[in-house]
Design a protein around this nucleic acid. Structure first.
Length: 239
DNA sequence: AGCACA
């Protein structure tokens, strides 16, 4: 019964996100990981203390959200397994498309007389939570992959943009040739290097950081084969 | 833990 289940919704509510990641990056990353499930209308995240570590991903179709929920539950992102639920309420973009959107200011028009005296007596408790940027790594620490039982590798320092990308979580049987086929579609692709002693990872070089960034965002979370379990994680290589 | 509409 009251186990926290929520009715299907276009929007996925995510929590247990790594709060150290800057919102811009977080939103981009979520988008690139989830876009494979369907068209995303919006990704929202806020920095207020009440909303840290949370995000909303709005899909055009409920079925996309449902697939995300089934397939990506617990997916480790920036070192933390994501917790996914349907959002409790309809997102504004959806309501606007519906024609059911009610602007927020007018929404409390229920008891027009009951609360008329309640003018904003907020304490203005200026929570100085403005610009704390704990660190500025763009893509966050590499995610330790198979996410088995709790033992984590050392937290890696976040790497700044780099024309070389670091791929993890590849199926171990992946060959450089297979990867090259995928990568050759991206502008500026130069070469892929794999290490026999370390299956599942690869270094991929592009002409510059712009090109590597485009490829990273396009390929983030992809699967080498349809039946592959693991979704590939891509970060900038450490310099 | 925490469900918004920057």
């Amino acid at each position: 019964m009251s186990n926290g289940e929520v009715a299907p919704n276009n929007t996925i509510y995510i929590n247990n996100l790594n709060e150290k990641i800057k919102l811009d990056e977080l939103k981009k990353t979520l988008k690139s990981i989830f876009q494979q499930f369907g068209n995303i209308l919006e990704v929202l995240a806020f920095k207020t203390l009440k909303h840290k570590g949370q995000a909303w991903v709005v899909f055009e179709d409920v079925s996309s959200a449902t697939n995300v929920l089934r397939q990506m539950q617990g997916f480790p992102l920036y070192d933390k397994p994501m917790k996914l639920q349907y959002a409790k309420t309809k997102s504004d973009v959806i309501a606007k498309a519906d024609g059911t959107f009610v602007p927020r200011e007018k929404r409390k028009k229920h008891d027009e007389r009951a609360d008329r005296k309640r003018r904003e007596q907020h304490q203005d408790a200026s929570q100085s939570m403005g610009l704390n940027a704990p660190y500025s790594g763009p893509y966050g620490a590499a995610v330790p992959l198979p996410y088995l039982g709790g033992v984590k590798p050392v937290p890696e320092a976040p790497a700044p943009p780099n024309k070389i990308l670091f791929f993890e979580n590849l199926p171990h049987e992946t060959t450089p040739g297979q990867l090259q086929i995928v990568l050759s579609h991206y502008h500026g692709f130069k070469e892929v290097r794999m290490i026999d002693a370390k299956p599942g990872i690869a270094f991929v070089e592009f002409g510059d950081e712009m090109q590597s960034t485009v490829a990273m965002q396009a390929l983030q979370g992809f699967k080498m084969t349809p039946q592959a379990q693991n979704q590939v994680l891509i970060t900038y290589a450490k310099k």
